[in-house]
Simulated scan of single mutants.
Amino acid sequence: MSAADFKDGLIAEIPNLRAFAASLSGSMQLADDLVQDTLLKAWGNAEKFQPGTSLRAWLFTILRNTYYSLYRKRGREVQDSEGTYADRLATHGNQESHLDLADFRKALAKLPEEQREVLIMVGATGLSYEETAEICGVAIGTIKSRVNRARAKLAELLSIGGVDDLGPDRRITAAVQRAGPEPVGS
């Protein structure tokens, strides 16, 4: 892989790295610092990247290790059980979708870190179970179990009992059902 191709690959992964870093840290400022450190480490160790393997998985591994090293050095971890940091991530507007997103972020922050981490990797960034298992250093079955538990816990926290409880379409569906069937031939 040429240096230009490697650089282009790094740049293309910045949004995914940023999203993952924000989900881990709960802070956009810390997320940006983590992404910067990750990119510097990746660039400095470009010769260690094996062409033909997943650049995204390699970068996520670097970011994840950087994050955990940072907290091991600090000797403590910031808890966000009240959702204080998650609230800072959202700009609240008048539209219900902003409230739904804020509720989702609060619920996501309440998940155990291991579950939140794999849910973001698999659900938001599109990593495969295999890539996520490699990054986390656990079996694929463990990843599947964590993702399943995380999804179930999110559904519970968000009071989602089924597909009908999802998204803004539930209001439209309810209004249509109240209005009754459409006349034939209209």
Rank of each mutant, 00 (worst) to 15 (best):
R88D: 08
A19I: 07
F104W: 04
A57H: 02
T132G: 02
A155D: 05
Y68D: 06
R88G: 14
I140L: 07
A86W: 00
G180T: 10
L154M: 15
E117V: 08
L17E: 09
D32M: 05
L70A: 11
V78Q: 11
L10T: 09
L39S: 10
I120D: 01
T132V: 10
I160V: 13
T66E: 14
L55Y: 07
G180D: 08
T173D: 15
N148F: 15
K48S: 13
M1E: 12
T66S: 14
Q36R: 07
I11C: 01
E96P: 00
R56Y: 02
L59M: 03
A86G: 03
L24M: 08
M28A: 14
A155H: 06
G9I: 02
D164H: 07
V163I: 10
P15L: 14
Y129E: 07
V147F: 07
G167M: 08
V163H: 04
R88A: 05
R105N: 07
L89N: 08
A102G: 05
R88W: 02
G75P: 00
F104G: 12
L59E: 14
Q50K: 13
A175E: 09
Q29G: 10
S128G: 10
E134S: 09
L127C: 08
D103A: 15
E82I: 12
L63N: 11
D100N: 10
K110A: 15
F6C: 07
V176H: 07
I140D: 02
E182M: 05
D87Q: 07
R74D: 06
F20G: 00
Q177T: 15
Q115L: 06
K73L: 13
D103E: 11
V138M: 07
M1S: 12
S54Q: 09
G162M: 02
R151W: 09
D80N: 11
M121F: 09
L34N: 05
K48Q: 14
T91W: 11
Y67I: 07
N45W: 01
S128F: 04
G75F: 08
S27A: 15
L70V: 06
G167Q: 03
S145P: 00
M121T: 05
K110F: 04
E117A: 08
A4T: 11
L157T: 04
V138S: 01
A3T: 06
P51T: 15
V176R: 13
K7Y: 13
D87K: 06
G9F: 01
I11G: 00
C136Q: 09
L108G: 01
T173V: 09
A42S: 12
E82Q: 15
A152Q: 10
N16T: 13
Y68N: 14
S81D: 10
